[in-house]
């Protein structure tokens, strides 16, 4: 009787183990799936970030270039005024 019970328990254990193993494999598979999806999401996030950065950089670059042009024009204008003054033109504001 004892042996029979032992054997029965052994079989139940084996079956439970097999079931658990199957479940674990399934869960592992799903985790792999989730991992792959996370990789995908990560790639999308990186792409989106790159787009945001590129757009911001373009906007900032264009601002800097505009300011650079403004600066250069303002400098040129001030120097032209001086040259005109030296050549005998009336100072600005009196013309």
């Amino acid at each position: 009787m004892k042996t029979f019970v032992k054997r029965l328990l052994g079989r139940i254990e084996l079956r439970l183990l097999a079931q658990t193993h199957a479940r674990l494999s399934e869960i592992e598979g799903r985790l792999d799936d989730v991992g792959a999806r996370l990789d995908d999401v990560g790639r999308h996030v990186a792409e989106a970030q790159a787009v945001v950065e590129a757009t911001a950089a373009r906007a900032a670059t264009s601002t800097e270039q505009t300011l650079g042009v403004v600066e250069s024009e303002a400098r040129t204008a001030r120097r032209f005024e001086e040259i005109e003054r030296m050549l005998g033109a009336a100072p600005p504001g009196t013309r």
């Binding site: 911001a56 024009e73 400098r75």
Partner: peptide, 19 residues
């Protein structure tokens, strides 16, 4: 890429045309 551009290329100094 995300830094504010006008902090270094300062608009009022640019507009003043200072050396």
């Amino acid at each position: 890429p995300l830094d504010p551009s006008v902090l270094v290329v300062v608009p009022h100094w640019a507009a003043a045309g200072v050396a």
